[in-house]
């Protein structure tokens, strides 16, 4: 029964990792940009939420109403003001600039909030659970997973059923021809980054409720998101959920064997997939 429990916990944890991955996957899909600062932006969102909850005294999930638009606005500004200038055939500038951004965000957070671990307090939600047979499943992990499914389903819908999604796919396919359709790619990229950081905001708040965080944990979140993307297969939105779940289950099973093995087991699962199925388990399927 312990093992079943570990698998359930891992699956639910995978929802959080899918949220880390979805934003990463979205911007890579639209503009072939890999944002090294992605993990730091997740942590940054958690700190934004912390400031809002402590100053307004509201629940962190309610604070999402503010955190999401704030992060989306930051994303749009970041893309228009900085990242658009780096996009081209050379992969070096965007990589190094987002790396610089990562260091800047980390140290700014350190300056403002110090290195002390923080946590978002969600009150009773943190300890609430429901009984399934002899197992107790936490409300928070369950809610996280449900939110992840909802976010990914909305992204999928937006991408394949709306005018915005059409524009995003057109720009992703062929930037020049998309411009001939009157699409300003600088704006479209801005929107894509805004969407990615809106998802990041949700991920950051859920992370902050689940565990304590400090300015240095961004790199690890980037890696988890990245692993979920690669395990799931590039260019597949639902794949990121599958990838997140596989990563989460690998980690909880690893932790079951030896607590020191939790993260390592996740990395090993990723490396095994990379060795056996380098295009991921669910490579791009057209919707």
């Amino acid at each position: 029964m312990d093992w079943v429990n570990a698998i359930i916990q891992g699956t639910l944890l995978g929802g959080l990792y899918a949220l880390f991955a979805a934003g990463l996957s979205l911007i890579f899909g639209v503009m072939r940009l890999v944002n090294i600062a992605h993990g730091d932006l997740i942590v940054f969102s958690a700190y934004v939420c912390l400031t809002i909850t402590t100053s307004l005294g509201i629940h962190p999930l309610v604070a999402l109403v503010l955190v999401v638009p704030i992060m989306a606005a930051i994303g749009y500004g970041l893309q228009r003001g900085l990242l658009n200038k780096t996009l081209g055939t050379d992969i070096l500038p965007p990589l190094l600039i987002t790396f610089g951004l990562s260091v800047i965000i980390q140290n700014t957070l350190l300056q403002v909030y110090t290195a002390d671990p923080q946590k978002l307090s969600a009150g009773d939600l943190e300890i609430a659970s429901i009984k399934v047979g002899s197992l107790a499943v936490g409300m928070l992990p369950l809610l996280t997973f449900a939110i992840a499914v909802a976010v990914i389903a909305s992204l999928q819908y937006m991408f394949y059923k709306t005018a915005l999604g059409r524009a995003l796919r057109a720009v992703s396919d062929n930037q020049e021809i998309a411009q001939l359709m009157g699409l300003d790619k600088r704006h479209i990229f801005g929107i894509a980054m805004a969407l990615a950081l809106a998802v990041t905001a949700v991920a950051g708040v859920l992370l902050g409720i689940r565990t304590s965080f400090d300015p240095s944990v961004g790199g690890g979140r980037l890696i988890f998101g990245f692993e979920a993307v690669i395990i799931g297969g590039l260019g597949n939105i639902w794949g990121t959920l599958a990838g997140g779940v596989i990563l989460g289950v690998a980690q909880t099973i690893g932790a079951k064997i030896d607590p020191g093995w939790q993260i390592l087991a996740g990395h090993i699962a990723f490396l095994v997939v990379l060795a056996v199925r380098p295009n991921g388990l669910f490579p791009r399927m057209s919707a």
């Binding site: 059409r166 524009a167 796919r169 057109a170 396919d173 021809i177 998309a178 359709m181």
Partner: peptide
């Protein structure tokens, strides 16, 4: 646009 259907290609032309 390869990831758009025939109709979507036309619609985006008229956006």
């Amino acid at each position: 646009f390869p990831s758009l259907s025939v109709e979507e290609n036309l619609i985006i032309g008229g956006r």
